[in-house]
Amino acid sequence: DIAKAIINLAVYGKAQNRSYERLALLVDTVGPRLSGSKNLEKAIQIMYQNLQRDGLENVHLEPVRIPHWERGEESAVMLEPRTHKIAMLGLGSSIRTPPEGITAEVLVVTSFDELQRRASEARGKIVVYNQPYVNYSKTVQYRTQGAVEAAKVGALASLIRSVASFSIYSPHTGIQEYQDGVPKIPTACITVEDAEMMSRMAARGIKIVIQLKMVEKTYPDADSFNTVAEITGSKYPEQVVLVSGHLDSWDVGQGAMDDGGGVFISWEALSLIKDLGLRPKRTLRLVLWTAEEQGGIGAFQYYQLHKVNVSNYSLVMESDAGTFLPTGLQFTGSEKARAIMEEVMSLLQPLNITQVLSHGEGTDINFWIQAGVPGASLLDDLYKYFFFHHSYGDTMTVMDPKQMNVAAAVWAVVSYVVADMEEMLPRS
């Protein structure tokens, strides 16, 4: 009845709302935690103390180097056909505009294909992408590649409709990439509303002119840490079940949902197991990644350092898609392993959360999954998640303590049982 004990403690017992309260304290104290920022390093130090104070074992910080880009003053104003201030957020790693800004006519397109078809019109313009939202993985291509594709056809800057499932005039940010040999141009996201408005204007043949000013700055890479804590295994201590979330966030809102929720339910999983006096046969390792938003930079260096032990990792878990009410566990692994995970998830029947779905993944754990280690991630209401993702709305106000309790219970049961089974999860 260990599973019931974990569920009772997390959802009905004295640990109720603990992960929510811990998260609120951190994000209210520190705020957003952009890669390379002092906020992030402050959060890492606070978590280091938290994990020690919680009595977890082998608490340590593993040094890594991470990108350091900072947002400066930024503004976009539509000058024609009328004056309209455009809410915007520069994209991570974007270059700045000249001091006087870029004032240019706009070309509105709804896809890369349309941009190609109308390439001859793009030279010297600001390209506005009004791409429809399909799902995050498909639509994010416009955020990450928008500047490169626009620069290839001679554009001066790109403004991209926020990758969001819903908008209340809320711009979203995120990382974007330049490409060797292609001129770097400033790039930012605008709101769904403004992208759609300019699309309508363009369809009526109205000329649109925007003045864009961005004072972003890229610094040399900064020092940072992945934060690690454990419950050392009682029988196979060298074997590991890794449970994780990322401590960095974008520089908007509080980073409570992305990925404060994942961090704190992962910590809560170890706290629940420790509170019950349990010690699994394998080591349960909590890792709080740094610089995930820049492409899993901290996690990649952790993988490089620890991959020598890849055969000792039974399961890697990352929660980085929200901690609203879970609908199931996403899993990647062999059929045998999946069958075992279905049995493990059946222990969560009391919460009626027993589904095992495909596509277990996480930017920070994908390195291990590609090396053959079974991987798991928490699935919840992704439609709601992308309302707030990478926007000023990512605050404690979207978090729900009861839902976090349930998410923590799922995370704790799965990680503990897999860590305590006599055999590791099979890979063939």
């Binding site: 196979y236 046969k281 055969s311 069958a339 075992i340 049995e343 222990l347 006599e422 055999e423």
Partner: peptide, 24 residues
């Protein structure tokens, strides 16, 4: 030692099921 990677499990799936059930 417990079996990992491409090793051969020493247990039948039924035994693994019963082991997991013991946590419930």
């Amino acid at each position: 030692k417990s079996i990992y990677k491409n090793g051969i499990s020493k247990r039948t799936f039924q035994e693994i099921k019963e082991e997991i059930a013991s946590y419930g």
